[in-house]
Write a protein that binds this DNA or RNA. Structure first.
Length: 921
RNA sequence: GCCGGAGUGGCGAAACUGGUAUACGCAGGGCCCUCAAAAGGCCCCGGCCCUUGACGGUCGUGUGGGUUCGAAUCCCACCUCCGGCACCA
């Protein structure tokens, strides 16, 4: 019983034991409260990263805590297995994406198991599995039938060299991230989901406990704007609709601007301007989105020759086109009010257009001729006919009295109407790729689209296809796949685009409920019990896209009646379904990111031929930086970077010198025996994201081999603020190693033989119960670091009381039992092993969580700080139930207090129960 | 530029809702054990001042103000860093 702690022996043993017992199988049990804990499913990229451990093991600890608190916990795991890397790997290595993905999943599944997490593997789902994507397709078809999916035009990033569409993330500075070839914008017809239909509801977070940052990010993304749409008229009497959030400045509109792509441009343009307009439109079409949105770029634009009538005052104003007006927002046409909009101002100044102020600030006269920038502040309306004098504030929408009055005025005259616009765009879900769920749509001979009927799903990805780097999606080339028949039996063409992988992650939380279910996406009986997700954890990088899409999905599914069966099942079990399908996840917490560890580069002295900031080295030696003064050479300093055979060294002169090595350069690294090479020189690593190319990746597998899973789990929880993350630091690990070793020794060592002293035992129980309270609260709030800290403190208390030998066996055993229970969620293997060695009933993970007893948490006396005029001067010991008067007398009795009072009576005494007493003189 | 979040010892960090700032740990220093090393044990560890030492004093949570008996915490202004958005009419 006294052998030492060996995680490599106990961890696999308990993992096998738990699995064989089905300890973490989550089964519907209406007699117990449920808790659905979900952590974002990983992409099977190959190897598990410390980031996965940092995200998942604390989530696991909390799920385990909830389980011990009496909840029936579902904590599933799966793989988000469709996506581009698999297809790229297929192209690069000529293996099928399925094979690449399957191999990666197998490896990652093994690695995931070493965490010792309570994943219910029988609920595992893999999004590229036909029994999963059948339902992704089914949902698409439902959305189509429900009017939520439609065909629309969109500009996409088209790579002419690859003949394919690229995702935004693949385009850097207008070039293909991988090949460096230019990317152009191309208009294509594709499938969209009507996310905008839910814009207003998506802005409502009242049912959610989500971080503020995510809520504001989503709100900004949706970008609600209150304003008015107003119809202007061309000289030919053709209406042009504009949208503005500043209808109060309508009388200051001195020209109009249309987006270059606006469909009315052609008709508005006069012949003498036609050539200039055409040239401008072509140039705008060629420019990439990034070039167009470069803020520092000077405004450009062209006059069309046409004019429009401003409906509020009948004025005739010129119509321009400019690329700062975008087709996709509003109506793609604006009224330009240069006096009160900086962009309009810039264009007006450049081309000498009139600037007419219509909002007059108090005590200051604006002059369009001399203004240096647009005026955006408050004032009152002027030059605005009947509405002159109306006060204008800086508020947006109807909250601004000027806007409020103008909208009413416009509506009365039927010139315009109040309009709410959103920045949010509909979700483009088409991808011209192979490795995704096929879009289950057929193009009929008559040009109409119909969904593949449910009984014909899934539309399977064809197997024997060829992947060639220059080609289109292999689906387009697969004739067998492409040609089929429609519902009427006539020839039809299959859609060859596949779906965005965000589709899969928008509903996977429902598939976990019943991964093998064949009647529907999920089994209503399971869903009735488990839904909605109670706690969702994952990275903050998904704040805007994934988390918005999955909210949209749930709302759309609700409105399409997909939860109706579930609602009926709920009612049968006495659970009220109202409002339970409005949001997918009630509680969201984001963890931070683990960054690479900072490392000093080797300190070197180099000699050779120097020319300016360049040295052709004959000899490079690694030396101790502290002894640098003993060395001399042409360059002396730390290696900052190394690219192939060129080193960048921070020379003592303060300059960075590039040191080039050749085949004859002699390299000496005292720590490494034998002949040394450039590759062995270590360069400085900054704190930044881990990546293979930077050489700063920390492998969880290696850490588990060296320290054990429990130690890695506990260290990740202890060393960082979970919601913040931070740079990895290998040294800190030792604190956790010592903690677990000492707990091991305490729990396997002999219990005290002597009878205990009452006070000492009482004191130990107080420590235990305070720890229960602290750990519970910490886990409740996702503060894993303080949970570990509290348990380390309890270890210190136990050590102290063992040394003093003042505690009897019974009290000692009880304290240890509590310690193990509190440790169980964080470090499940060692807790189980010690629990078993102490002869307690299997499994520790099925024990109830201990309750802190408030009566045991306080002693007979307590220590109060004594302040004089707010400064701490002494402390006093008083009975727990001492009244204010007694506390005051005790405080006054202190000589230190007397000295600071200098004999005066305090004018006022403030007693904060249990904390301090403050004497004001 | 706009919107979020954060600045606390040498380092990671703690401090519930305004109530003893720096818990817990790392690193560092001193001592003990040991033939020695590893491991381990005990003690010290924010700055400055007074002092042989102790007792003590004083400053101190990015900066400057404010509210309060009392501020890391609340308010105002500013600085820095991180994240997001970015010509959105």
């Amino acid at each position: 019983m006294s052998d030492s702690y060996d995680p490599s022996e106990i961890e696999p043993k308990w993992q096998r034991h738990w699995e064989a017992d089905g300890l973490y199988r989550a089964r519907v049990d209406w007699s117990r409260p449920k808790h659905y804990a979900l952590t974002m499913l990983p992409y099977p990229s190959g190897d598990l990263h410390v980031g996965h451990w940092f995200a998942m093991t604390p989530s696991d600890a909390r799920a385990r805590y909830m389980r011990m608190k009496g909840f029936n916990v579902l904590f599933p795991m799966g793989f988000d297995a469709f996506g581009l890397p698999a297809e790229n790997a297929a192209i690069a290595r000529n293996i099928h994406p399925q094979q690449w993905t399957t191999e990666n999943i197998e490896r990652m599944r093994r690695q995931l198991r070493t965490m010792g997490a309570m994943f219910d593997w029988e609920r595992e789902t893999i999004s590229c599995d036909p029994c999963f994507y059948r339902w992704t397709e089914w949902l698409f078809a439902k959305f189509f039938d429900g009017g939520l999916a439609y065909r629309g035009e969109a500009r996409v990033n088209w790579s002419p060299s690859l003949q394919t569409v690229l995702a935004n993330e693949q385009v850097i500075d207008g070039k293909d991230e991988r090949t460096g070839q230019p990317v152009v914008q191309r208009q294509m017809t594709q499938w969209f989901f009507r996310t905008t239909r839910y814009a207003e509801e998506l802005l409502d977070f009242s049912k959610l406990d989500w971080p503020d940052s995510v809520r504001t990010m989503q709100s900004n993304w949706i970008g609600r704007g209150e304003g008015a749409s107003i119809t202007f008229t061309t000289e030919d009497g053709e209406p042009i609709e504009i949208y503005t959030t500043r209808p109060d400045t309508l009388w200051g509109a001195t020209f109009m601007v249309l987006a270059p792509e606006h469909e009315q441009v052609e008709r508005v343009t006069h012949d003498e301007q036609r050539a200039a307009v055409r040239a401008y439109r072509e140039q705008a079409a060629r420019a990439t989105e990034i070039e167009r949105s470069d803020e520092h770029r000077e405004k450009t634009g062209v006059f069309t020759g046409g004019h429009a009538i401003n409906p509020v005052n009948g004025e005739r104003i010129p119509i321009w086109i400019s690329d700062y007006v975008m087709l996709r927002y509003g109506t793609g046409a604006i009224m330009a009010v240069p006096a009160h909009d900086q962009r309009d101002f810039d264009l007006a100044r450049k081309f000498g257009l009139e600037i007419r102020p219509v909002i007059q600030p108090e005590g200051e006269a604006l002059d369009g001729e001399t203004m240096e920038s647009a005026y955006l502040g408050p004032g009152s309306m002027r030059n605005s006919g009947a509405l002159d004098g109306t006060p204008a504030t800086e508020a947006r929408g109807r909250a601004n009295p000027a806007i409020h009055r103008v909208i009413d005025w416009l509506e009365e005259r039927r010139i315009g109407k109040e309009t709410i616009r959103y920045r949010l765009r509909d979700w483009l879900i088409s991808r011209q790729r192979y490795w995704g769920a096929p879009i289950p749509m057929l193009l009929r001979g008559d040009g109409g689209y119909e969904a593949v009927p449910p009984e014909s799903l899934p539309v399977l990805l064809p197997e024997g296809v060829e992947f060639n780097p220059g080609g289109q999606s292999p689906l387009k080339l697969s004739e067998d796949f492409r040609w089929t028949t429609d519902a009427a039996g006539d020839p039809a063409e299959r859609e060859t685009d596949t779906m965005d992988t965000f589709m899969c992650s928008s509903w996977y939380q429902y598939r976990y409920l019943s991964p093998g279910y064949t009647e529907a996406p999920f089994d209503p009986e399971e869903a009735a019990y488990w839904l909605p997700v109670d706690v969702y954890t994952g990275g903050a990088e998904h704040a805007a896209l994934h988390l918005l899409y999955t909210r949209f999905f749930t709302k759309a599914m609700r409105d399409l009646g997909i939860f109706e069966e579930t609602a009926r099942a709920m009612k049968r079990h006495g659970r009220a379904p109202e409002g339970l399908f409005d949001e997918p996840m009630l509680h969201l917490r984001n963890q931070g990111q683990i960054l690479g560890e900072e490392r000093r580069g080797d300190f070197v002295v180099a000699t050779g031929r120097r020319a300016g900031n360049h040295l052709l080295a004959d000899r490079i030696e690694v030396i101790d930086a502290a002894l640098a003064h003993e060395h001399s050479g042409d360059v002396l300093g730390e290696i900052l970077r190394r690219t192939e055979n060129v080193l960048v060294v921070a020379d003592r002169s303060g300059q960075s010198v590039s040191v080039e090595t050749g085949p004859h350069t002699k390299i000496e690294i005292p720590e490494i025996e034998g002949e040394n090479s450039v590759g062995q020189l270590r360069h400085h690593l900054e704190i930044q994201r881990m990546s293979k190319s930077k050489g700063n990746v920390v492998s969880p597998d290696a850490l588990v081999t060296e320290y054990g899973a429990d130690t890695v789990r506990a260290y990740l929880m202890f060393a960082f603020d979970w919601e913040k993350g931070g740079p990895w630091d290998r040294q800190g690990m030792m604190g956790v190693v010592r903690w677990l070793n000492e707990v091991w020794d305490l729990a396997t060592g002999p219990a005290p033989a002597e009878a205990g002293e009452r006070d000492a035992e009482r004191n130990l129980a107080r420590c235990v119960h305070r720890t229960i309270a602290r750990v519970s609260e910490s886990l409740e709030r996702f503060h894993f670091n303080t949970a570990v800290a509290a348990l380390m403190s309890l270890r210190n208390d136990l050590r102290g009381s063992l040394r003093k030998a003042t505690v009897g066996a019974e009290a000692w055993n009880e304290a240890l039992r509590m310690l193990l229970l509190l440790m169980a969620p964080l470090v499940p293997h060692i807790a189980e092993e010690l629990w078993s060695r102490r002869g307690l009933e299997y499994s520790i993970h099925q024990q109830p969580w201990p309750e802190a007893d408030p009566a045991l948490m306080v002693g007979d006396t307590l220590t109060l700080a004594v302040q004089v005029n707010g400064k701490r001067r002494d402390e006093i010991e008083v009975a727990v139930d001492a009244d204010e008067d007694a506390i005051r007398r005790a405080a006054m009795a202190s000589p230190k207090v007397q000295r600071h009072l200098r004999g005066r009576e305090p004018k006022r005494v403030i007693v904060v129960p249990g904390r301090l007493v403050n004497l004001i003189s």
